[in-house]
Lab assay of single mutants.
Amino acid sequence: ATNIVSKVKWYNSTKNFGFIEQDNGGKDVFVHKSAVDAAGLHSLEEGQDVIFDLEEKQGKAYAVNLRIK
């Protein structure tokens, strides 16, 4: 899926990962520091509106092509 609009559930800049809620009630989506860095960001804030693409690797959903709404 591409261009999903949602909100950051939480992000831990010390552990370099977090999760984004899915508005459709699906499972929370993992977001890694590499996606945050690629977006030119230093961190994410809880409740922040984001747009991302969903990529599945080894049966897990990852946020990629992250951008701020």
Score class of each variant (00 low, 15 high):
residue 1 A to Q: 13
residue 1 A to W: 12
residue 1 A to T: 13
residue 2 T to S: 10
residue 2 T to Q: 12
residue 2 T to G: 08
residue 2 T to W: 12
residue 3 N to P: 07
residue 3 N to S: 09
residue 3 N to L: 06
residue 4 I to Q: 09
residue 4 I to L: 12
residue 5 V to K: 11
residue 5 V to A: 11
residue 7 K to A: 05
residue 7 K to G: 02
residue 7 K to Q: 06
residue 8 V to H: 00
residue 9 K to V: 04
residue 9 K to E: 01
residue 10 W to I: 03
residue 11 Y to V: 03
residue 11 Y to C: 04
residue 11 Y to M: 02
residue 12 N to Y: 05
residue 13 S to N: 11
residue 13 S to L: 10
residue 13 S to T: 12
residue 14 T to M: 12
residue 14 T to N: 12
residue 15 K to L: 15
residue 15 K to R: 12
residue 15 K to P: 01
residue 16 N to G: 15
residue 16 N to H: 14
residue 16 N to S: 10
residue 17 F to S: 02
residue 18 G to N: 01
residue 19 F to R: 02
residue 19 F to Q: 02
residue 20 I to R: 00
residue 21 E to M: 15
residue 22 Q to A: 15
residue 24 N to G: 12
residue 25 G to F: 09
residue 25 G to K: 09
residue 25 G to P: 09
residue 29 V to Y: 12
residue 29 V to L: 07
residue 30 F to M: 04
residue 33 K to W: 10
residue 33 K to F: 09
residue 33 K to Q: 11
residue 34 S to C: 11
residue 34 S to E: 07
residue 36 V to S: 00
residue 36 V to P: 00
residue 36 V to A: 03
residue 36 V to Y: 03
residue 37 D to I: 15
residue 37 D to Y: 15
residue 38 A to K: 12
residue 39 A to Y: 02
residue 39 A to W: 03
residue 41 L to I: 10
residue 41 L to W: 11
residue 41 L to M: 09
residue 42 H to D: 12
residue 42 H to W: 11
residue 42 H to N: 12
residue 42 H to T: 13
residue 42 H to I: 13
residue 44 L to F: 05
residue 46 E to L: 10
residue 47 G to C: 08
residue 47 G to L: 04
residue 48 Q to L: 09
residue 48 Q to H: 05
residue 48 Q to I: 09
residue 49 D to H: 14
residue 49 D to R: 13
residue 49 D to K: 12
residue 50 V to M: 05
residue 50 V to T: 02
residue 50 V to G: 01
residue 51 I to V: 11
residue 52 F to L: 03
residue 52 F to R: 00
residue 53 D to Q: 06
residue 55 E to N: 08
residue 56 E to L: 14
residue 56 E to S: 11
residue 56 E to D: 08
residue 56 E to I: 15
residue 56 E to A: 09
residue 56 E to T: 14
residue 57 K to Q: 10
residue 57 K to V: 11
residue 57 K to R: 13
residue 58 Q to F: 14
residue 58 Q to H: 14
residue 58 Q to E: 13
residue 60 K to L: 10
residue 60 K to E: 06
residue 60 K to Q: 10
residue 60 K to R: 13
residue 61 A to R: 14
residue 61 A to K: 14
residue 61 A to T: 14
residue 61 A to P: 08
residue 61 A to H: 12
residue 62 Y to Q: 11
residue 62 Y to E: 06
residue 62 Y to P: 02
residue 63 A to Y: 03
residue 63 A to T: 02
residue 63 A to F: 02
residue 63 A to I: 03
residue 63 A to G: 04
residue 64 V to A: 07
residue 64 V to D: 03
residue 64 V to G: 04
residue 65 N to W: 02
residue 65 N to P: 00
residue 65 N to F: 04
residue 66 L to T: 00
residue 68 I to C: 09
residue 68 I to M: 10
residue 68 I to R: 07
residue 69 K to E: 11
residue 69 K to T: 13
